[in-house]
Design a binder for these strands. Sequence first.
DNA 1: AATATACAAACGAACGGCTGTTAGTAGAGC
DNA 2: GCTCTACTAACAGCCGTTCGTTTGTATATT
Lengths: 196, 196
Amino acid sequence: MAKIKSKNNGTKKEVIVEAATRLFREKGFKAASMRDLAEAVGVEAASLYNHIQSKEELLQEICFKVANEFNQKFDEIENSDLPSIKKVEAMLRFHIRQMFQHYEMVIVADRDWRHLSDPYLSNFHNQRRAYRKRLAGIIEAGIANNEIKPVDAPTVVLIMLHAVNGIESWHRSREKISAKQLEDNMVLIMTEGLKA
Amino acid sequence: MAKIKSKNNGTKKEVIVEAATRLFREKGFKAASMRDLAEAVGVEAASLYNHIQSKEELLQEICFKVANEFNQKFDEIENSDLPSIKKVEAMLRFHIRQMFQHYEMVIVADRDWRHLSDPYLSNFHNQRRAYRKRLAGIIEAGIANNEIKPVDAPTVVLIMLHAVNGIESWHRSREKISAKQLEDNMVLIMTEGLKA
DNA sequence: AATATACAAACGAACGGCTGTTAGTAGAGC
DNA sequence: GCTCTACTAACAGCCGTTCGTTTGTATATT
């Protein structure tokens, strides 16, 4: 069973999810139609349903893949013995790199997750809240042992997570500075105001 | 003629635009239907067209109202004789306050402007680019006379403008710190890393 | 004061078009 | 011959919007 590989590197479903990611990023989940998607894949709309169950399933795949990657990295960093300020920096750098390498799915997950329906909607929403709370926890730990100046941790999380979204603009701007340069600049600006 | 005031404080069109703002913010422009909007206003969908020309006109009103307010404030600050770093801080504070007071329309304009169609789409897009360039200009001026440390100005603009969007989460979170407190926290975090 | 005129604003019905999705079927590759 | 995948055709439902008409009300005329 399942020799349904497409071309060279994955199942047809994966090809569809990738095309959906690009399309959803460009038009938004609601505005992107299954017929648009079919055209992008090079097939009729009905044919998509040999590989997927529904339009929403595509959004689920995207959202939870992104969520899992972030949660996994978070575990790794949280369990390390870095000082708190370095943990924050590491998470920030990971966010920035994900935004460089997989920005389309990161943006779709961040912008269109509200179009999920329960139980996926609640699940994702809860994960999102939990993630922010954990991140704020690291910052508060840093404040507690004087690595980080006493700022409101949830505010810092708010700023950091949203600031990274700005990289979307960078992706389609003409005169790009290098990725490394942008990363270092962002980290500098965002963490310099934190240090005690 | 034209005593078509609704209830006490504005034309019916204004009432519709306000309801549309709330609805678009909640569901997104594409996902919000004219029948949804009609119900929110307390009227049949067809009746809306006695007051507006199209669904897109509503989006136009929202987007350009927001754009005009920001551009106006920008002129005022740019023409002042504040030091560059203070101009940046003033703009940042204005963004934050707009986000507190009119966050629904600010968010709709920022998230759904892509659903405008030409010529409004190009117009808005150009204003957006110009705004960011002007803001970067202020920062570069500050770098030139050593008020601001030598960072990449477009990156700072990216971060600042997106960071402010985080206030949306604050609006619907349970345990709010005060608006003033959040504003000061954001300004501190965002500007401390900039000072030379 | 009663009636006629004018017009804004509401309505139900309907439009063509697009939506996500299903059914049934034909062909390709093992 | 069996499985997988593509197709065409069609579905029910929602979309923004238009139509013709009725309702409500403020003003002008008698």
